[in-house]
């Protein structure tokens, strides 16, 4: 039944561009989808390994910049007389590069920063993202700095002379984001229901005990970071080739916070949590905009909701719903044994 529900959901999501003829709403859905992918990737770290990484937007931005730069081509002087230039690459290849480079950065950051935990880890990750943002802002030769990378090409797939799919228009991008999202979801689901995911859960729940049964703590934290960073990078690449302009503001800390809010509200450490949270906080800004509220209202709402969720739904929406559902079915099932016992008493 659960599988049937998943398929029904997928069919529904796939049908959206067929009956929805409001392009603005479709745009909102695409952006929400990109953020949901980023939130799912953060959930692997925050929810499953229990490490609060507040630098996650760095991987998103690295993916966006790396993919854009590869597709646009660039030339930089690494030393005054040593120039490195890269010719424009096909967009699908660039997106792959963006994903891999983000994953590689995840590996490096994981290796370095898991020496420290708790508050220290959080602060290292924040610092990492800020440094990357300042590099994007100041390394003008590579990134154009605040002038932003413009005219980023959109994705085209196909066999020359036979057929070509172009991802310029919104419905095509919607399906692209949906496909990448489904792939990421499946990869995460397989991981968390495997030896690797169990190792991550074990070290979240009880690190000394996990080590005592042979879990190599660093190895699994780094694995989680690589996968998580790679997926965030893929989301960034999707963003770059959809919006087709990338500036250093993609690294703003507020976007990490948005992802954290999505994960925490939806339910960290659950597969559906980031999707539910991502849908709520992906659509909320547009709802507020439709109500003609100034943009600050959106952030104030985020801030207040974050506090309220921590107080009243500390586990998030998905676990709360699940408990409520189980509680209901337990109540529904309860009369049977009660009856049996009263009969036995007679």
């Amino acid at each position: 039944m659960k599988q049937g529900l998943t398929i029904a959901w997928l069919l529904f999501l796939a049908s959206v561009p067929l009956w929805l003829n409001n392009l603005y709403v479709l745009h909102v859905l695409i952006m929400a989808g990109i953020f949901i992918i980023a939130a799912m990737s953060l959930n692997l770290l925050l929810g499953y390994t229990g490490q609060l990484s507040l630098g996650h937007v760095a991987f998103f931005g690295i993916g966006a910049y790396a993919s854009s730069l590869a597709s646009l081509g660039f030339a930089v002087h690494l030393l005054p007389d040593w120039q490195v230039s890269v010719d424009p690459k096909p967009v699908w290849f660039s997106m792959l590069c963006g994903t891999l480079i983000a994953g590689l950065c995840g590996w490096a950051i994981g290796r370095l920063s898991f020496k420290v935990r708790g508050a220290y880890f959080v602060i290292v990750t924040v610092s990492f993202a800020e440094v990357i943002r300042l590099v994007a802002l100041n390394w003008v030769e590579l990134t154009q700095g605040p002038m932003a990378l413009n005219n980023i090409p959109y994705l085209r797939l196909g066999i020359p002379g036979l057929f070509e799919l172009s991802f310029l228009r919104k419905p095509a991008n919607y399906y692209l984001v949906l496909a990448v999202g489904v792939i990421c979801y499946v990869v995460i689901r397989r991981l968390v229901h495997s030896r690797a995911g169990r190792a991550m859960i074990a070290l979240r729940e009880n690190e000394p005990l996990a080590a005592s049964v042979g879990v190599d703590v660093t190895r699994y934290l780094v694995l989680a970071t690589i996968v998580s960073a790679g997926m965030a990078g893929a989301a960034g690449a999707l963003y770059a080739h959809y919006v087709r302009i990338v500036d250093p503001d993609v690294f703003l800390f507020i976007y990490t916070v948005t992802m954290v809010i999505m994960v925490v509200t939806g339910g960290k450490g659950t597969l559906a949590g980031p999707i539910v949270g991502g849908a709520i906080f992906g659509l909320l800004p547009e709802t507020l905009r439709a109500l003609e509220a100034p943009p600050e209202v959106q952030w104030v709402t985020y801030g207040v909701l974050m506090v309220l969720v921590v107080y009243f739904l500390p586990d998030g929406i998905v676990p709360a719903l699940r408990n409520w559902w189980h509680g209901r079915s337990a109540v529904a099932a309860a009369p049977a044994p009660e009856q049996a016992s009263t009969e036995a008493a007679r």
Partner: peptide, 9 residues
């Protein structure tokens, strides 16, 4: 998390 919420607000 609460302090982050307070900060944004």
């Amino acid at each position: 998390l609460v302090m982050i919420g307070a900060w944004i607000t």
